[in-house]
Nucleic acid binder design. Structure first.
Lengths: 340, 340
DNA sequence: CTGTTAGCGCATTCAT
DNA sequence: ATGAATGCGCTAACAG
């Protein structure tokens, strides 16, 4: 591995000249430039980024704190991660994926390590502690999700209140009067996980607004859990004609239960799932979904941090982006059974 | 951010003493030790890892080159990535996820950047060029997957020849005489993607060995593609009673096609999917699967690199691990329809 | 336009 | 058992 001194020596110039040729931060005469470039080429020199990072106090790396809360739960996570990583790469940043049981501590650790310029947080709670810690240290970060108080913080999120309402509006318009919602587990609700709390809020608003009778069913994001919940709810309340689920990962178990109870989808039971477009296509039967722009969220998450890093003074004004999930009818549910 | 000099000054010792207290690489008298530790505590000092990395020539970071070949295709990737990252963290390493359209170049770039101590490669081709490049530079790496020539390289992989054979053996034992295999796309086959080539080999061996008639159907790993392939194949060859698919991501489209042609699973059509246990549970109906130990592969991938990094001399003898996928019958397929 | 020099934060060798 | 000094590879201020 050759270093800048090697190049300097070979080109017969000083170390700093080589550095400036590389960075372009000061004018270099064309002949010198060429000699330096030739030397770089001959030695197959590539700058050591550790040295650069230490000297410039910038690592050109951003990190994503991967969720412990709902970890590994589904393909949505993959979409966030890869699109954030891709976006980072596109902007010339390396992408660190950080996994730790204790997220609060890990956030702080990353912030002071020196290896990371900025952070992306996901699985945000209403009173997320990590955000406080980082803000206090004035460490650049952005959130995929949002808190109750987002002063001075950039974020991108899906509007869950809206998504839940639109799902209910759609079902109400088909004539359904009795709807069940497979929502977040009690545990997620208890820690104030944003999507959990907000979809419940949207659901509550919606049943009043659209005059349907709706029940909320906490449920883990697993096929087994969904199977159990749906099985019990259809047995106890056979008058339910429509299901909304926040757990796309659970749709398998859901449909299994419905079928075993003799309900056909969509003939006897309408289902709306909240998920990403990619994931939606893998279901059988094709479901009506509220599609999350997962890839865009990952991309924006990265861009929001990078934007701060590249704003002089480090005080870019925060951007709040609340995206809307789009209702996609893949296979017509037809009117509610009771209305046929 | 306080530095080691700050600590040294505060404790009234030299810089190197602080360093040695931290590393434990030479004996320190208890009183001095305590003074240093106190100073560290009072200043809330945490070593800057960039400085450490530059001085010690070790970044304590490993990177995973995320596949461009079959990118983002499914949950299997998420399992590899998260379990590798988790394993890295457990061993005290940071985890860099690298995404680049040109993987060969990216591998080399990572190798010389100085930011990364070792690399995990996945989506390995029979003649994978990245492996050659890295081996040539004597840069530590391990593979999830394996090449034709694996001299001196550590890897973990699933035995795809075996998996394909076991799937066929199972179906043959149920009495199926006419089996179709949804295999890798022609493109993957053409580039010599390991799992593609090897599952075809296993399939070919198996039809001879078990005396069944089998047809191979190249197919993209998407629900749409699978739908089209299955639709055509069941139409043209209605005598097919069993399907094996290498594309768990495609099962939705597959089943949709089967149902539209009036085939019920498993009554009229047996299906065996090659996938991870986690993913297997999300299917409806529950399928018989060849389960990949996805999490273990990710974990081992990380451990194999780390093992090399932590072997003195850097020349750990290579480890080759060929894991077996396990047949899991989740819902009995019953005998072949023709035999009922 | 170019060279010299002083760090960045830490590890480590050489002294004592 | 401890301190002083050097260097990892590079950036950037300072000096001409």
């Amino acid at each position: 591995m050759s270093t800048m001194s090697d190049v300097a020596e070979r080109a017969g110039v000083s170390l700093s000249t080589v550095s400036y040729v590389l960075s372009g931060k000061r004018a270099i005469s064309e002949p010198t430039r060429q000699r330096v470039l030739a030397a770089i080429d001959e030695l197959d020199f590539h700058p050591n980024e550790l040295g650069r990072a230490l000297a410039s106090q910038r690592s050109n790396t951003i990190a994503l704190l991967f969720p412990a809360l709902t970890r590994g739960i589904g393909e949505l996570h993959l979409e966030f991660v890869t699109s954030a990583a891709e976006s980072a790469a596109k902007h010339g940043y390396s992408f660190l994926l950080s996994i730790s049981p204790d997220e609060d501590e890990e956030a702080v650790r990353l912030a002071r390590r020196g290896f990371t310029d900025g952070l992306i947080l996901m699985e945000i709670k209403l009173q997320d502690a990590r955000a406080e810690l980082l803000r206090h240290r004035r460490f650049p970060f952005a959130m995929i999700g949002h808190r109750e108080d987002n002063d001075g913080i950039s974020f991108v999120d899906v509007d869950f209140v809206h998504a839940a309402r639109e799902a209910l509006r759609y079902l109400a318009s088909l004539g359904h009067r009795r709807v069940a919602f497979l929502g977040a587990s009690d545990q997620l609700m208890a820690v104030g996980y944003g999507p959990a709390v907000r979809s419940l809020a949207g659901f509550t608003q919606a049943i009043a607004e659209f005059g349907v009778e709706g029940t909320w069913h906490p449920c883990d994001a697993s096929p087994r859990a969904a199977y159990a919940v749906v099985e019990e709810l259809l047995r106890k309340s056979p008058e339910v004609t429509a299901l909304v689920t926040a757990h796309h990962e659970a749709s398998g178990g859901m449909m299994q239960a419905a079928r075993e109870l003799g309900r056909r989808i969509p003939a006897d039971l309408s289902v709306v799932a909240m998920t990403s477009p990619r994931q939606a296509e893998t279901f059988t039967p094709l479901l009506t979904t509220m599609d999350f722009p997962a890839a865009e969220m990952g991309r924006l998450g990265a861009e929001l941090v990078i934007r701060q890093l590249e704003t002089e003074g480090g005080e870019a004004e925060p951007i709040h982006r609340l995206l809307r999930a789009e209702l996609t009818v893949r296979q017509s549910s037809g009117p509610a059974p009771g209305r046929r």
